[in-house]
């Protein structure tokens, strides 16, 4: 089985919740965003649960989750070794 780790960065309100800028998470196999999110809910509480819009089942439009720099919306997005996941808010552009 493949082992690996990913970097998770927290910005804005997520940084306030976790009191961390960055964590490293071990992943033991190819996993999905949903699995990572479940772990974060366990660690840091329900604010991470609210990342998901309960009506659509997708990442809420007023939250920005980036996987290797790309904004993602689906919870079944695949996460693999050396990926960088960013939890942030849609503020950008200049």
């Amino acid at each position: 089985m493949m082992k690996g780790s990913i970097e998770i960065l927290f910005h804005a309100s997520f940084r306030q919740i976790t009191k961390k800028r960055k964590i490293i998470e071990e992943i033991s196999e190819e996993c999905t965003f949903e699995r990572i999110l479940t772990r974060l809910v366990k660690k840091y509480g329900n604010d991470f649960h609210n990342v998901i819009n309960s009506q659509t089942g997708k990442i809420s439009n007023d939250i920005l989750v980036m996987l290797n720099g790309k904004g993602i919306r689906d919870t079944d997005e695949k996460i693999k070794d050396k990926d960088v996941l960013i939890f942030s808010l849609p503020v950008g552009g200049g």
């Binding site: 980036m66 808010l89 503020v91 950008g92």
Partner: peptide, 25 residues
């Protein structure tokens, strides 16, 4: 009530930096 405004209320446009300086924009 939007998350965007709540972030802007606290950090102003400086908050953009967290995004751009981690992604490379």
């Amino acid at each position: 009530s939007s998350r965007w405004a709540r972030a802007q209320s606290k950090w102003g446009t400086l908050i953009i930096y967290s995004n751009t300086n981690t992604t490379g924009l």
